[in-house]
Structures are given as structure tokens and as C-alpha cells.
Design a protein around this nucleic acid. Structure first.
Length: 296
DNA sequence: GTATGGTTGGGCATGTTTGA
DNA sequence: TCAAACATGCCCAACCATAC
């Protein structure tokens, strides 16, 4: 996906990544070296992108009129289409399947930045924008699917039916935290070249003190591995056979971060700290085995 | 208390309609 | 003609009731 290679403006450091104050952060950051991958999870505060000069000009004029006398802007079809297109591209940098709350984020951010775009009849002032964004995103996905975007073709009903027989939904969809669910191969790489990398990895895991090399190769083959696992749905034994390095503690953590952009250990520990008291109370109440575990 | 089955609302892919 | 909006059918997860 081309749009993924573009640098995106960061809002603040209050995203889940801010938890990454350990060595895991370096792992998360290193994944961004591959331009075909998403490098950020959905931001807490969505940043409205800079529109084209023409769109920007009309919105600034609209905002000025709104400030002067409270006049709302009624965007032409072309203007609305341009705005929706830019927002869809921006959202796709983070997620191709945004949730309802995330559509709210974007629509709210839009009317916050450009209050002239508020809607009179809606309670929130942006409900119509949210619905339009949903439609836009659905149509945008269709377009991406038609030009061969892996993340989407993998979920097309036609693809599933031709590949695996009955139920169309055997393939898990990228939802919730899966930032890099099914990425395309890195630029310049092919299935064959990445298979060669995998074979090289098999040799490297047998050697000692080459963690860095293994890490680089695991990052390079990430898209290949994801597509293999998602499309082929192999047994764990088979995955272990083909990707032994994936089963080391370091690589479990790294792979989780590559997929979700969330640092696994620090997030887990932070949550554990948060819920520890409550868990202890539950275990004490339950008694039996749980009680023995706590008392040890 | 746990397992099982039915119901329902929401979300998705896909195809069609609408309107500028 | 093209993109937005809409319609349809399907699946899944959450919820609830019931049985054991």
C-alpha cells in the first residue's frame, strides 16, 4: 500500500506506544524500517491531514465566515468527495477497518478543526460525516481490493470460496489491535526471495550469538510469514518447523509488536500492576488451588 | 456452576442505484 | 462517468434461557 510509506504526523506520545520505555521500544521502532508496514497504532487524537490547496482554501474561507457570522459551509459534492478521500487515505495509514468509535474520532476531529463543517440537525454535529466516512471507507476498501491489496483480497468472498470451499469467513479479519494484519511484501521482494530468506534463517537459528541477524531476517520475512499463516492456516507444529526462530521469547514479543505495534511485556506488566490488587482479592475469595498459588 | 442452543444486533462484502 | 449512498445476504459475537 503506497499510502503506508508516507510519513505521518504524530499527535502526541500518549498512544499505547508510550508504554514502550524498555528495550521493546527499539523492536517496535525497528519494524518501521519496512515501508510496507504500518508503524503506528490508531492515535488517541486523530490528526486531520493537510488537504489540497483548493480544498484547504475553501475550508479556510468557510471557517472565516463561520467566525464572522456563524455561517455554516455546505460543501459541494466535489469538495465533500475530496475531503472524504483525504480522510480515508489518512485512516488507512492506521487501519483499513476502523471501528465505530474511530469513525467518531475522525468526524469529531474534522469539525473541531473546521467548525464550518458542523451539521445543524445532528446532536454531535458530525453524525452525517461519520456515516459518509463509513461509506467512503467501504468503497475505498473495494477499490484497494480490486487493485490487489493483500490485506483486503484475503478477505474477499471470492478468494475464500475459490481457496477453501464452504464458509466465507474462515479467514480472520483484521480487527481491534491488529495494525499489520496481513501486509504486502516489502518493495523489491518476491515470494521466492523471501523463501530463500526463510531457508537462510533455518541455518542461522542453529548458530550462537547472532540474535541481531535473526531479528533482521525475521523482520524482513514478516509479510511472507503472515500471509503463509493467514492463508494456509498451518498447524502449529508446521509453523514451528518452518519458523523455529518465532518460538523464542524475544521473537514472540517482537512478532506481537510487529502485528499490533503494542509493546507486549511492558503493556502486560502495566496491566498486571493495575489489576494485581483486584486479582489477589479474587484468588483469596476463591480459595482452593488459587489460594495455594497466592500463598506460595 | 457449567454447558448448550437460540436470538439478535452489528459489521462485512458485494452489487445496485442515484445524482452531480 | 464516477463516486457516494443504499440494499441485501451472510457471518459472528454477545446475550439470554434452559438443561444438566
Amino acid at each position: 500500500m503506497k499510502s503506508l510509506s508516507m510519513p505521518h504526523p504524530r499527535d502526541d506520545c500518549s498512544t499505547p506506544c508510550s508504554l514502550a520505555d524498555t528495550d521493546i521500544l527499539s523492536s517496535a521502532e525497528s519494524t518501521s524500517s519496512d515501508s510496507s508496514l504500518r508503524s503506528q497504532p490508531w492515535p488517541l487524537k486523530f490528526q486531520i491531514p493537510e488537504f489540497s490547496y483548493e480544498v484547504q482554501f475553501q475550508l479556510e474561507q468557510g471557517n472565516q465566515a463561520f467566525l464572522n457570522n456563524g455561517t455554516l459551509l455546505h460543501p459541494s459534492t466535489k469538495l465533500k468527495s475530496d475531503i472524504l478521500q483525504s480522510l480515508a487515505s489518512e485512516m488507512a495509514k492506521y487501519k483499513i477497518y476502523p471501528s465505530s468509535a474511530e469513525f467518531d474520532n475522525v468526524a469529531e476531529a474534522l469539525i473541531t478543526k473546521y467548525p464550518c463543517l458542523k451539521e445543524k440537525g445532528s446532536v454531535t454535529g458530525y453524525y452525517g460525516w461519520k456515516i459518509s466516512l463509513k461509506y467512503k471507507m467501504a468503497n475505498y476498501r473495494t477499490r484497494l481490493r480490486n487493485i490487489g491489496c493483500q490485506e483486503l483480497t484475503i478477505n474477499s468472498v471470492k478468494e475464500k470460496r475459490s481457496g477453501m470451499g464452504p464458509g466465507p469467513n474462515q479467514v480472520k479479519k483484521p480487527r481491534k489491535a491488529e495494525v499489520n494484519f496481513c501486509p504486502d511484501y516489502p518493495p523489491g521482494e518476491t515470494k521466492e526471495s523471501l523463501e530463500e530468506e526463510r531457508k537462510a534463517l533455518l541455518l542461522e537459528v542453529k548458530k550462537k550469538n547472532n540474535d541481531q541477524l535473526i531479528k533482521r531476517k525475521m523482520e524482513k520475512t514478516f509479510a511472507y510469514r503472515r500471509q503463509e499463516i493467514i492463508k494456509g492456516m498451518p498447524f502449529i507444529a508446521e509453523v514451528k518447523n518452518r519458523w523455529p526462530a518465532l518460538f523464542s521469547e524475544t521473537e514472540v514479543v517482537a512478532e506481537f509488536t510487529r502485528i499490533t505495534m503494542v509493546p507486549l511485556l511492558s503493556t502486560f506488566m502495566a496491566k498486571l500492576d493495575r489489576y494485581a490488587d483486584h486479582l489477589l482479592r479474587v484468588f483469596k475469595k476463591k480459595g482452593g488451588t488459587a489460594k495455594r498459588i497466592i500463598s506460595t
